[in-house]
């Protein structure tokens, strides 16, 4: 499955400045691992020592927080958009 991953400003230097990257994978976790494969350094920024998403990282699949879905196990579909968004905003 090819999905588009949207990258926030803070992480764009890791992706050569790109705001979007196209990647393959069948779950949210696989796509994010593929992101780290294509642009090393992402995993360290997105995951804690236990491999879970860091406290202040939100990931949205087609505008839904993956925590409301199946987390990193959430299946992704062809052409969907995955957004990485810093949690510290709003209020």
């Amino acid at each position: 499955m090819s999905v588009t991953v949207r990258i926030p400003t803070q992480l764009r230097p890791l992706a050569g400045g790109a705001g979007e990257v196209a990647l393959d994978g069948t779950t949210v976790g696989e796509v994010l691992k593929a992101l780290d494969g294509a642009h090393p350094g992402f995993a360290d920024r997105l995951f804690d020592d236990d491999g879970a998403l860091r406290r202040f990282v939100n990931v949205f699949l087609a505008d839904e927080d993956v925590r409301f879905l199946q987390g990193l196990e959430t299946p992704v579909g062809e052409g969907q958009t995955l957004s990485i968004v810093p949690a510290v905003a709003g209020g």
């Binding site: 949207r6 926030p8 400003t9 705001g19 939100n58 949205f60 505008d63 927080d65 957004s83 968004v85 810093p86 510290v88 905003a89 709003g90 209020g91």
Partner: peptide
């Protein structure tokens, strides 16, 4: 919901770095 609005603004603040989102980049 507000959380949708907030997510949109968090992404917009990356696209419009010259805007002062008071509770995003100015938070």
């Amino acid at each position: 919901t507000y959380d949708d609005v907030n997510r949109l603004c968090a992404e917009l603040s990356s696209e419009h770095p010259s805007w002062a989102f008071v509770n995003v980049n100015i938070r």
